[in-house]
Amino acid sequence: MAQDKNNLIVYCEFDEGHVADVSLELLTKGRKLATRLGVKLEAVVIGDNLEGIEKEIFPYGADVVYKIADKRLYPFTSMPHASALINLFKEIKPQVCLMGATCIGRDLGPRVSSALHSGLTADCTSLEIGDHTDARNNKEYHDLLYQIRPAFGGNIVATIVNPENRPQMATVREGVMKKEIADENYKGEVVNLDAKKYVDEASYVVSIIDRHIEKSKINIKNSAIIVAGGYGVGSKENFDLIFKFANVLGAEVGASRAAVDAGFVEHERQIGQTGVTVHPKLYIACGISGQIQHIAGMQDSSIIISINNDANAPINTIADYVITGNLEEVIPQLIKYYKKNSK
């Protein structure tokens, strides 16, 4: 197959006047992939009141920003956004399209991929470029997108490719890729597209009658220190100790799924494959055994401390410091020594 010289595009989620963090993370990754492929990085924003939105996007290295605005395009509904992307992609034929694995991206991606008959891989944890040989006919493909994701409950990791169909589509959860400005002064081209031309009128069929969105106050993703509690914490009341420890250290509180499922803390705090992915400089796991799905969301922490009464807890193998003991005895001591030694 001839080298694919078409561009890579990121669908930028637009929320309350801004581009969502997950889209900026994907632009950062997209910039690297586009450079590797020798193609342009493009972005598309669909919504309402998009004036100046490109200023948030260009610093991440986007060469083109497509804007499609109409007051019916915000808040998001599936069919009009899908219609816009399908029509745009038929025209510009991107080789790769990345989206956030958010409520929006996971609703929109499959609809678009179905219409274009292109493959889509959900919840990728890593994206790379590489070659592929089809084992059945020995056909060779160059520079495909490797869509790498956990499968089978996280027990295996699969690499998926779409050899023949374009765009190669992938969604990625928030926090999995790092957001990094490429160049504050990077300038690209803005292309304003006429919503009437790109969005089929017939697609405006679902209407929003009511909407209650609250900005979450919990921000574990950007916290430098995380104290995470697991099922071993034992109860909702005992979780107070985790909150107290976090408070003293200026940390955020995270949790394992078992702790969330048991109702100890809210779901927003769940770390792992089906929760948030974090990369803090310090991660303190308290009463967490360290199953594969939890580790998937925190293994890149710079320093890991495990507090567990089981010296053989799996998490201990990836911890820098292993404290073997009951957390209700260990944590109060750590708080005491911290207060004593910090000014």
């Binding site: 008959h117 891989t121 990791v157 699969a158 490719v161 193998t317």
Partner: peptide, 12 residues
């Protein structure tokens, strides 16, 4: 359209 290129077990 999607093909599984390879599968590896997760080892940390």
């Amino acid at each position: 359209p999607t093909k599984v290129k390879g599968i590896v077990n997760v080892v940390f």
